[in-house]
Design a protein around this nucleic acid. Sequence first.
DNA 1: ATCCCCACCTGGCCGC
DNA 2: TGCGGCCAGGTGGGGA
Length: 283
Amino acid sequence: MPELPEVETVKKGLEDFIINQTIKKIYLSGLPLRFPLPNNFKTLVLGKEILSVGRRAKYLLFYLSGNISIISHLGMSGSYRVLSSTESQDYIPEKHDHVIFEFKDFKVVYNDPRRFGYIFITDKDPQDHKLIKPLGPEPMSNSFNENTLAEAFYRKDRPVKNALLDQSILSGLGNIYVCEALFRSNINPKKKIKQLVYSDGSPKNSLIILKNKINEIIEEAIALGGSSLKDFSNAEGKMGYFQNTFTVYGREGESCISEECNANIIRIIQSGRSTFYCPNCQK
DNA sequence: ATCCCCACCTGGCCGC
DNA sequence: TGCGGCCAGGTGGGGA
């Protein structure tokens, strides 16, 4: 499900309900997520108050009282949903519900069919956690710009599609937004990243465009509440709308949206994952 | 160091 | 209706 805009959407939805609320009870399915929950998860979390909710890349960060933080990644199919007080009454855990947080008047359910998600707990700054620390800059932060990107791409030989999925270069993008950003930038996903940088290390114009298109897409997608494929929805169960603006993702064999182009979108496999692009527009 | 590939899971869809 | 095969928004860890 979730890339940065979807996680941001979930974060905003949860925030409205859980800030300053105390965790009264915890339900666990007992099934392992990608990594098993720590044994003392319940003990550490029960009775704690949620002070704030943050996001780093595709991770949700819950800051609790008592200097405890929960780090949560949704994997491919994880979702959080807030149950209204009516729904919360007599709610029986459904299939793939793995963690349920009970508050005074409502419940928050973490559901994850594929169990690729994971939840960690830490008593240190989550930003220092070993999974968070190596992450590259947030796309909407100042530390993501054409110069940092040029530095990461300098003399490197990998395809730009793969590099943009690499969370240590730039964090938060996934398969959809990378494909869409490359289309908007007219860059072929197979292009080697060193070709976007001059030999003196400065960014070529195409790299500056790519950087700007990434910002543009992330901003638009957040404004539209993310993309709803399959069953993604925000914490209140509402769908996102960005999928209606997809130009290449999932459109194999369909015609390119560009007016003056007669080509069809094709799908190739790069590092084991589907890449969608227009062979005519993206050079 | 750098990069690729596999594994981890369930479920939906398509063709036979 | 059933079954096999393929596909899916991610990424840690191991190996080349």
